[in-house]
Write a protein that binds this DNA or RNA. Structure first.
Lengths: 197, 197, 197, 197
DNA sequence: GATGAATGAGCTTTCATTCAT
DNA sequence: AATGAATGAAAGCTCATTCAT
């Protein structure tokens, strides 16, 4: 598991870029900003990522895999579908709390700046690790007779749109309570929307 | 109702800016781009809007009022809550189809580039016309015994997150069917999630 | 014939660029160099030429037309072929003396940096004004029975290669005498090489 | 004649640099490009050549000696002056065909980027091996009563300017025939221009 | 109101060269 | 001899904004 020096530096760039991009957006973050915060020269940055866009794309893949791994763990747990929904919501909100840069990057950079991701991420392929696990979740739910058998993306849109919307509202500071407090009601809403009828 | 010349020119800018911002994003659209498409000099543009950011903010207000007006009509109609949900979903998807620049602007510019709207739009005030009507919808639904009485923003997040998510997925071309076809199932999902329990 | 202000500024850029490119070469001359010498901001330079390459290409056309015009005058004069050769040589060497940046640009920038001119100047089209007049000169010489009827480019290569070579040697400071002094012998050499046999 | 390892590596760099410089030009070729193609690290490259400019200069000397050696062979042959001219033209065109990187380097890098060669190559000293042999050729021609006794550089400019011009035109793809086919007429033209009168 | 030339700061990216290993 | 990460200066180019006309 020992990382090479180069891998460590690359991870440092990823961490810093994630933070800055998520806070300031893609365009308002400059390579000099990133390099300075990593403690690296601008020129050297380009030994790690061939362009700003390539960095942005690697970041999406990174987050997608991170999210995907957590959902896989939930998928593989013993919980029933309703509990799994709660676990996913919890995981998502915890992540929004503890690693907000990841969720924010997803919402603010990936979902919004289509022009950046057009070339290599078409059809959500940069995000497939995550989407695949959500598919498995739905399929399992349907198979086990808990969820209504509907178009995947309709259900996916509900689930992720809802969660993303809440995180957005939280970021806007219009929610009266911490995200934490909404886990129950939101899980319930989602379950009600998706359950067998 | 006759508009002054100045108002007409201003509306022309708004229309063009909406189109370009929604297609290319805020940063990739330049003032020269907008001025050229309006048929106006760059210098003159600044007689109508004092900066690019101010233009962006006026655009949000414009869309918020437009959306708000349509929801008010639905709120004031005779329909019951379940029908109103269907009407709002329909209206939203129709708008995504016929005036995509509006929905796209909302999703791609307003929701994503927080840094632009920080100064004058905090706490969703630029978007209050629209939010207010959604609040009225929920209150009416609760009053009439149709909807479960929960935190407004939790319900709002579900509703708008879901719709936004679907439009996003549609834009990504991953939906097998046209948005139109999802009206029924999505309205149903939303109603199931929000109804009295 | 009154030039607009903008045309004057453009001409100023052309003059400066010609000078710097010919002295330092294309790559060693920067846009900031040019702008500074014109007394203009870097940004404003790009209101006149959309890129450094475009500027380089306009320069070739400019010189080609300038040279072409002078050769046309000679072609249309009453002189016989041998005299015309002398006139062309004289004109070329005078130009190398009085406007060296033009000849130098031709030799050092246009002839050498093929990659710059690949896209829009293929097949010598950027230089056609000049080549055309040389063609006319040869045709006339052949028609009047003075020149041997051979492949145009073979003759053209002799003529222009020779003159270019001499200017190069002059620039290298290896010629014992000023260019001026070679007019006679070179014209004679060219005539001997091309005349009817 | 066994080369040391170091000499072999150096020759490998020379071969690669010649190829890349002649194809892409001096500025568009990077040291990393060269090192990669040689299969060597960038750092190691600097153990063989102390700078990019030094490499460029060694290359000229290398070509000059190569050309000089071939001309010496011709000078030392039994042929008469007219035949020697033909042999030089042939050799030059053959070289342009079989080792185009050498001729191209001469024309595109050495003759054009004066700024690179200013410091150590002034007065054609980097190229003296070749120039010297051409001088010998002319002197012999004059001594044997075949060539007109004129200024050496005037004759040299004709000879080399002509040949360089033809190779240039060939590279521009404007010649109707292969270079090969021009050997006769060009040799004749040169002889006519230089012969005793 | 209208024009568009002008500014200048700042961006992404490149690359010859160095140096610790 | 060899590696390649690191530097840093500089390049081409963009663009929001201003201002003289």
């Amino acid at each position: 598991m020992a990382q090479t020096m180069k891998e460590q530096r690359k991870d440092a760039i990823i961490a810093v870029a994630l933070e800055l991009f998520s806070q300031r957006g893609f365009y308002a973050t400059t390579i000099p900003d990133i390099a300075a915060k990593v403690g690296m020269s601008v020129g050297n940055f380009y030994n790690y990522f061939t362009s700003k866009e390539v960095l942005a794309k690697e970041l999406v893949v990174y987050i997608s895999e991170y999210l995907g791994k957590h959902i896989r763990d939930i998928n593989e747990s013993e919980a029933d579908t309703e509990e799994k929904i709660y676990k996913i919501v919890s995981m998502y909100f915890n992540m929004a709390h503890e690693r907000p840069e990841m969720i924010e990057y997803f919402l603010r950079v990936y979902l919004s700046n289509r022009e950046i991701f057009l070339d290599d991420c078409e059809g959500m392929i940069c995000v497939s690790a995550f989407v695949t696990e959500m598919m498995i979740f739905f399929d399992d739910g349907v198979s086990s007779g808990d969820l209504y058998d509907q178009d995947f993306f309709s259900a996916f849109g509900l689930f992720m749109g809802y969660l993303g919307g809440m995180v957005f509202l939280f970021g806007e500071k219009v929610l009266p309570d911490p995200l934490e407090n909404y886990k129950e009601s939101i899980s319930k809403n989602i379950y009600n929307a998706l359950k067998i009828r």
